[in-house]
Every structure is written in C-alpha cells, then in structure tokens.
Write a protein that binds this DNA or RNA. Structure first.
Length: 557
RNA sequence: GUGCCUGUAGCUCAGUGGAUAGAGCGCUGGUCUCCGGAACCAGAGGUCGCGAGUUCGACUCUCGCCAGGCACGCCA
C-alpha cells in the first residue's frame, strides 16, 4: 500500500521528537495534522505542526518550521519542502505517489478504499418502516435511499449489515384502515349509510381501488358478514395488499430488506407484556391514574411515559420498547434507526428504555431525515396527506427513474431540508449530476474499448512512467483518487451518504477536465499508457461510488 | 414557554480550529481537423443571520439575540 500520508507523518514525527529532545521539551505533542492544501503553489501536502508547537518551543512559528525542515530526512517521495504563510510546511512530492495510487486501484479493483471499521461486527439498520395504511410517499423515499445507501457504505466498511423494515400492523391505525375500506366497499355497493366513512379515515383513492378489487373478487357477499368478522377481514385485506405494494415499490427502487418485522408478532408472542414485566422487576415501572408508567426520567427523558393506558391497551411506545429489546437480544453490536425528523422528540425515551433494559444506549443511534420539498419548474408542489393528495414514491420513480431519484435523495445532508426538482432530476443534461457522473464512467469505458480495438495492450504489472503525467489536471484527478479512502471512512463514521454523492461528482468533474485537456490515444506510447491507466483507475473508482449509491454505471449512454 | 434542526454567492448547497471561504445552476465571454460537446475554460458575484467571548488563528467551539422548520399526547 502506498500511504503517503503515513510516510510524511512518520518523517515529521521523527524530526519533531528529535527537536524536542535536543531542547528538553516534552515529546507528548498532539497528533500531527496533514492536509491537502486547497491552493496551487502550496504543495501536495501541508502541516501546521509548527504553528501548533511554536508556544512549547517559545519560538516564532516560522523559525520552528525552519528548524524542523532542516531535520527532515531525504525521501524518494519528496521533491521539495517550503515554509509558507504564518508557518505552514508545504511538501511538494515527486510523481512516485501517482504510480502507487494508480497501481493500488488497478490491483485492488472494487475493493480499493475499503476501510476496516466494522471488523465483521453486526449492525442492524432499520428504515422506511411506514405504516401499511397507504402508499409510500416522497418522504419515505428519502428515508429508503438514505437507509439503503448508508447500509451499503457500512457494509463496504466491513460491517455485517442487516436491513430491516418494522411493520406497524397493530393498533388503532389498522382498525381505521379496515373501517375506511369497509365504508368504501359499502359505498360502491350502493349502501353508504350502512357503513359510514370514519371521521379520521384514510381518504386516498387507493382505498377505493381496494374496495373495487374486493367487489370484483367477492361480489356483494361481504355485505352480509357480521360486523366483527368483517372489520378484521377488511383490515387484513387492506393492510396485506398495501404492504405488498410497498414491497413492490421498494423493490422497484432497488431497496431490498433482509427482514420484515411485524409489530403484531410482538403481541402474538407476548413480548410486549414480557418487556413491561421485565422493566417492572427492575423497578422502573409504576402505576398512576390507572395507567402503567415507565420511569424514563430516571435516565435522560424529561417526563415519564405511559406503557399501558388506563383502558388496558398498550401504547405504541410499549411495543417499541419491546421491539428494541428484541433487536438487542438478537445480538447486534450496533442498532441504527432511520426516522423522519418530526420524531426527534422520541429519541430520549427510547434511549432511556434501552438503558433501563440493561443495554448500551450508545450502541443505538437514530438517523433523522428532514422533509422533502417537491418542486416542478421551481414551483413547490402542494401536498396534503390528510386529504389523500400527495405524490407517491412510485409517481417520482415513473417520472424520473431510479438512478436520478436515488441520487437526488442523498445529495444533501440528511438533516437539512431537501429541494427535489422533478424537472431537473429527469433532465438528461449537464445540469443533472447523475448523468454527469454516469457520462464520465461511460466515456472511460469508451476510451478503453477504443484502445482495445486499436490493439493496445495494458498490463499494470509492467508499470508505467509516472513522469509522463505532468499536467495539473492529471495530478488533480490522482489526488482526488487518493483521497477516496478518507472520504469513504468519513461517510461510514458519520453515516453521511451525501459525502459519497459529492465525491463522485467531484471525481467525475476531475475526469472531464482531464479528458478535455489531455489527449490519450495517439500520444506517444509512454504518455498514452500512463493516461490509460489513470483513466482506468478513475473508472474503477467511479463504478465503486455508483455501486455504493445503488446507481447503475453504464458503459454506454 | 421548553427542546432539537437549519441560516454560507441571485438560487440549491459543500465546507465539524488554519493560508486568499468552495461547487453546481443562472449570468457574461470563450474552446472541437482529434479518444463520446450529455464535455471543457475564463469572468463577474460574499459584512459565512447579528453581537460578544475562547484562541497565535473562528464559517467551524462557547454564550446571548434574530429568522425559518419541527417536536413537546394515556396518537402513531
């Protein structure tokens, strides 16, 4: 491996330690910070260590920098070292690192840049988890994309990832769904007065569709059914069908879950009551005004929470506590929930419950997803879930396609609002970042293919002349490629898929600049091969990024 | 009222203690005899919401304001 940063770090460390010893200064100095200067003329790498240490030495930073530079040993990677600005030390490298980085990428291929953060530990990512009471809307789509891509990144980073969807198929909402469907069925059968539509019912057209299906399948036979039987029949029929279409939508979006976990199963297996009793045994439960409370204020919540209502019905929170106990009992080292940002107030009580259950709340993290603002031609599209008027995920997928939809959902930090412009997303032009990235990949494939048809053979084992790569565009792209391991590590640690989305866009931009200013085929053999290897490495990296994003990497467009 | 998130170029956003704050779109002006012009280059455009503080150094950390969003149920 070529770890130029590590090499520089060692050299500086050594010089600094020596300098400290000679001057009777403590050698427990802070970590040496090395970064890539943004500006040209400031070298390939730079350190501010002289600025940080100047006080310890009681010297002006520039003077300390000079003393440090004098002590730096010769190294094949280093061309020259300069002191700049207030006391930065800038390193100008020989081209050796470019050969190393390109060689690494070509030999590691799609494994290049894999950080071993997970060390094969188990992590569960639970996301989407929309109630089966209606189709997935755009907000769920963002959660789906963020969850799925985060899972991809964690998996790439060495975690053993399980994707799970929590199905809220128990409770009051299900009954309302059943009554809504039943009311529409009676309405279509011409008897609306016999089953009035519930006040808080689901008004979307999809309920009519379900009722129509039932009329076609079962005729009017359900009109005669006793009310208790018919309610559960309509409820199960509606939730079952809606869940199926949710599964189909997600599949069409390229999102595949390892497990669909039913809330109802928690009740069927008595896990909810067992969990409440467990907390009771530990002394975190008390009764007041007829309800059973969890003493979450013993941990980090601002008020205690009801587990069992006065009417004997458990709250949603009760089953959620049971669910999280179940998750940890399955042995995950980390548990990640992806929620809509409107649920943020819920975090302290769940963390409290996890702590009360004797689990480590720091092994649990919640990933909040902010709202999506859907635009068309710059104008916001008005939506109302209550009135059943909203754009569904499927609508968006049908209109703009999977690749662009996935990209747009993760191009911004998850905790900030997202403007999603449908017109921009489906535009197949330079404005659209997805096509920009895919186009770079296709171009690379095209050049490599053209090289092949011209009978040019490439074998990285034979190496190439890195001195043939001399333009700023080539170095810029190579530097970007060498930064990929840090970027993917950052994306994994911070669970930040937008880091990958941005990186891919920047690398694509570097490639387009390079391609435009550097002729490849037809140049002298040394230059041509060096550039072909460079392009091939960029292609591998673009493909890796697109794979992490779950976006296709076309060879032709 | 309390808590959380956000405030950076005309617009949408990157940037979690370093040098002259970046990118895309939009605007202005350029670039192909040639490997894919769905591309590239250049220019204009900023009191980083406001004000203090910490620091050699602050868009970044702390505190206080201002503005927008969200949450504060025996709803889910």
């Amino acid at each position: 491996m070529s770890d130029i940063k590590g090499i520089l770090n060692d050299i500086i460390q050594e010089a600094l330690t020596g300098l400290c010893r000679d001057n009777d200064i403590e050698t427990n100095f802070p970590e040496i910070i090395l970064e890539r200067p943004k500006r040209q003329g400031q070298g390939d790498w730079a350190t501010n260590v002289a600025l940080q240490m100047a006080r310890n030495f009681n010297l002006p930073p520039r003077e300390l920098a000079r003393m440090l530079v004098e002590r730096l040993p010769e190294n094949e990677h280093i061309q020259k070292v300069e002191i700049a600005g207030p006391g930065f030390i800038n390193f100008f490298l020989t081209n050796r690192w470019i050969r190393d980085i390109v060689g690494d990428i070509l030999s590691s291929n799609d494994a290049y840049g894999r950080p071993d953060l997970g060390k094969d530990r188990d992590v569960q990512v639970e996301f989407v988890s929309a109630n089966p009471t209606g189709p997935l809307h755009v907000g769920h789509g963002r959660g789906a994309a963020v969850g799925d891509i985060t899972a991809n990144i964690l998996s790439f980073a060495g975690w053993n990832v399980q994707r799970e969807y929590y199905v809220n198929d128990a409770g009051l909402q299900m009954d309302i769904l059943g009554r809504s469907t039943r009311a529409r069925y009676f309405e279509l059968a011409g008897l609306p007065e016999k089953a009035p539509f519930p006040e808080d019912g689901y008004k979307g057209d999809y309920i009519y569709d379900l009722a129509k299906e039932l009329l076609e399948e079962k005729g009017v036979s359900l009109l005669e059914m006793a009310i208790e039987d018919s309610l559960s029949y309509f409820r199960d029929y509606a939730s079952g069908h809606i869940l199926n279409s949710i599964k189909k939508d997600l599949e069409g979006f390229g999102v595949k879950f390892d497990r669909w976990f039913s809330e109802k199963s928690l009740y069927d297996n008595h896990l909810v009551m067992q969990t409440v009793n467990y907390l009771k045994d530990k002394g975190y439960v008390y009764e007041e005004e007829g309800a059973i409370w969890f003493r979450s204020t013993a941990f980090e919540d601002e008020k205690d929470r009801v587990l069992i209502r006065a009417n004997g019905v458990p709250t949603y929170f009760a089953s959620d506590v049971a669910y999280h106990k179940e998750k940890f009992d399955r042995g995950f080292d980390r548990v990640i929930d992806v929620w809509g940002a409107d649920h943020h107030g819920y975090i302290p009580r769940v963390r409290s419950a996890i702590a009360a259950l004797g689990k480590n709340p720091d092994a649990f993290s919640v990933f909040l997803i902010q709202f999506v603002n859907l635009l068309r031609g710059g104008e916001q599209i008005a939506m109302s879930t209550r009135a059943g008027e909203f754009i569904t995920l499927k609508d968006v997928l049908d209109e703009v396609g999977v690749d662009a939809t996935r990209y747009f959902f993760v191009m911004r930090r998850s905790d900030s609002h997202l403007d999603f412009d449908l017109d921009l997303a489906k535009r197949q032009s330079t404005d659209n970042p997805v096509y920009y990235i895919q186009y770079a990949h296709a171009r690379i494939c095209s050049v490599l293919k053209e090289a092949d048809t011209r009978g040019i053979t490439l074998n990285i084992e034979e190496g190439f002349d890195e001195e043939a790569l001399s333009t700023p565009e080539e170095k810029r792209m190579a530097a970007r490629m060498s930064a990929f391991p840090e970027e993917v590590e950052k994306a994994a640690l911070e669970m930040a898929p937008h880091v990958i989305a941005n990186y891919a866009l920047e690398l694509a931009g570097d490639f387009h600049s390079f391609y435009n200013s550097c002729r490849i085929l037809g140049e002298s053999d040394g230059i041509m091969k060096a550039r072909l290897f460079l392009a091939e490495a960029a292609g591998i990296l673009l493909a890796t990024n697109l794979r992490l994003l779950g976006i296709s990497a076309p060879e032709r467009m």
